[in-house]
């Protein structure tokens, strides 16, 4: 068997549309989407909590679906559209879910909040959660060590109801 020793640094060219802006980037193949967003593009709203897919702080919307950006490689998403917390406000107006988090005080330290909000928007688009129990279940991938769950759940339920009317 031929031994293929990997080249020390393999870079690939990709195109990503991030928050509506097209980026043509050359990335080292082992760069996670999270590290690309934070370290390279300085979009530090997306947080690195555990970097293991356990906390949800890194949640972004990839082609409209919520995912953990820490557990995917940037190079795997050539041509994709990504929405982060920085891309939710439109024309200077916060996304209604963002505004609701502020109005209802659905956080304390705020570190998990960008992930919570992106996850909530993903949940609303999926359309599977209807009851409080279902919201709690389908938001379980986002941990809040301050324990702001009560208000977070209320905000998501309200946003769900608004999205139906």
């Amino acid at each position: 068997m031929e031994k293929n020793t990997p080249s020390p640094i393999q870079k690939e060219s990709i195109m990503l549309t991030i928050n509506g802006t097209v980026h043509r980037l050359e990335v080292e193949v082992w760069t996670t989407l999270l590290d690309l967003l934070r370290e390279r593009l300085k979009l530090t709203g997306t947080k690195k909590g555990c970097d293991q897919g356990q906390c949800g702080a890194c949640t972004v919307l990839l082609d409209g679906q919520r995912i953990n950006s820490c557990l995917t490689l940037a190079v795997m998403h050539d041509g994709s559209e990504i929405t982060t917390i920085e891309g939710l406000a439109q024309n200077g107006k916060l996304n209604p879910v963002q505004q609701a988090f502020i109005d209802r005080d659905a956080f304390q330290c705020g570190y998990c909040t960008p992930g919570q909000i992106c996850s909530a928007i993903g949940l609303i688009q999926e359309g599977k959660a209807k009851t409080k129990a279902e919201v709690r279940e389908l938001m379980s991938g986002n941990l809040c060590r301050c324990g702001a769950y009560t208000h977070i759940t209320e905000v998501v339920l309200e946003a769900l109801e608004r999205s139906r009317t």
Binding site: I67, L71, T72, S119, M139
Partner: peptide, 9 residues
């Protein structure tokens, strides 16, 4: 199993 984010991927 897992979370909604993980199941999407």
């Amino acid at each position: 199993g897992a979370s909604a984010q993980l199941r999407n991927k």
